[in-house]
């Protein structure tokens, strides 16, 4: 005795087929009508995660949907980026990325499983953090000129950085052709241990984001010499830039930006862009920005792309000039 007849089976298959087709057709509600996920490629509580949470809390209120920050830490944000690249381009999965995964990694972690410019729909640049060169209290030098002389007199000085795919590490490489200063990069997995070693004079120099250096600088446990951005940092107003002193045009900052999967419709991108700009005016976001001293050049998607292309080109040429080779993939 057959369990079910051939006819029933065919009928069942036909119904299932109709149902699946029917599932795909429905009225498109206006965006956003569902919760939005923002993927962050770093652990919760860190420098990338916090602004994501601050912005998303405000945006959720303004847009009327809940926004959840989902952390997928690891490998400088590259796996998180790859995850979003493969997500549905409906505007409900976004990527809060940094220069580590979308600029420096082109060189430091080649071959990347994506193209940062082509494989993502850009929404806006979010923040920029200049890099600052610091040292422990034992180094006897003050100011840009003296420290550059010191570095030239002691070639191949160790300079700690907060990771192999950070703009800081590559900023030091950029100094070789531009300033004739050769240093040895000493990577750390994060800024914390680097700060401890600097304060204890275990390593003479370090380069890191200004926002992370401020607490120790205020406590006079480390000294700052210059920043690598075009303009001075708001929280380090006394620290000169390389641009204004010895190397006009020197620009090497860490940045963060918001992306969507490739193919996300332009109206959706525009809406998110507007929501971000609105959120940046909220008092709690403004307070955090003041404290961390980050520049917040929220702009258009086109501006983000232009900025990225300049940044990537910079690192590619540095790697070529200094003959740096990395091999991150199989």
């Amino acid at each position: 005795m057959k369990f079910w007849s051939r006819r029933t089976g065919l009928l069942g298959a036909a119904c299932a087929a109709v149902l699946t087709i029917a599932g795909g057709v429905h009225a498109q509600p206006t965006y956003p009508s569902q919760p939005i996920r923002i993927i962050v490629g770093y652990a919760p509580g860190g420098n990338t995660d916090i602004p994501a949470r601050l912005f998303s809390t405000v945006m959720a209120k303004n847009l009327g949907v809940s926004i959840v920050v989902e952390n997928r830490p690891g490998a400088s944000g590259v796996p998180a980026a790859e995850f979003v690249k493969r997500a549905k381009p409906d505007g409900y999965t976004l990527l809060w990325a940094t220069s580590a995964s979308h600029s420096v990694s082109v060189v430091a972690m080649a071959p990347l499983p994506y193209d940062p410019v082509k494989d993502f729909a850009p929404i806006t640049l979010i923040s920029q953090d200049p890099n600052v060169l610091v040292s422990g209290p034992d180094i006897k030098a003050e100011g840009v000129q003296q420290i550059l002389e010191y570095l030239k007199a002691h070639p191949r000085s160790p300079v700690g950085n907060s990771g192999p795919a950070t703009s800081g590490r590559f900023a030091m490489e950029l100094m070789k052709p531009k300033l004739g200063v050769e240093t040895v990069p000493v990577p750390y997995k994060s800024t914390g241990p680097l700060l401890t070693d600097l304060a204890g004079n275990q390593i003479p120099f370090g380069i890191m984001g200004a926002s992370t250096a401020v607490p120790f600088l205020k406590d006079k446990r480390i000294k700052a010499y210059f920043v690598t951005s075009l303009t001075r940092s708001r929280i380090l107003p006394d620290v000169p830039t390389l641009n204004e002193t010895v190397s006009p045009g020197f620009d090497a900052v860490a940045w963060s930006a918001l992306y969507a999967p490739p193919g996300t419709p332009a109206p959706v991108v525009a809406k998110i862009n507007a929501a971000m700009r609105e959120a940046a005016q909220a008092p709690e976001v403004k307070q955090w920005l003041e404290q961390s001293g980050l520049e917040v050049p929220l702009g258009t998607p086109e501006q983000l792309v232009a900025f990225m292309q300049t940044d990537i080109a910079r690192w590619v040429s540095v790697a070529k000039d200094n003959n740096l080779k990395f091999n991150a993939g199989e």
């Binding site: 652990a43 919760p44 509580g45 860190g46 995660d49 916090i50 949470r53 601050l54 401020v214 607490p215 120790f216 205020k218 406590d219 446990r221 709690e284 307070q287 955090w288 404290q291």
Partner: peptide, 17 residues
């Protein structure tokens, strides 16, 4: 790091001070 992050969100700068 997460606990410190919660402090940052509250507007408190963690650090030696």
């Amino acid at each position: 790091a997460l606990i410190l992050g919660a402090l940052v969100i509250q507007g408190i700068q963690p650090g030696p001070q």
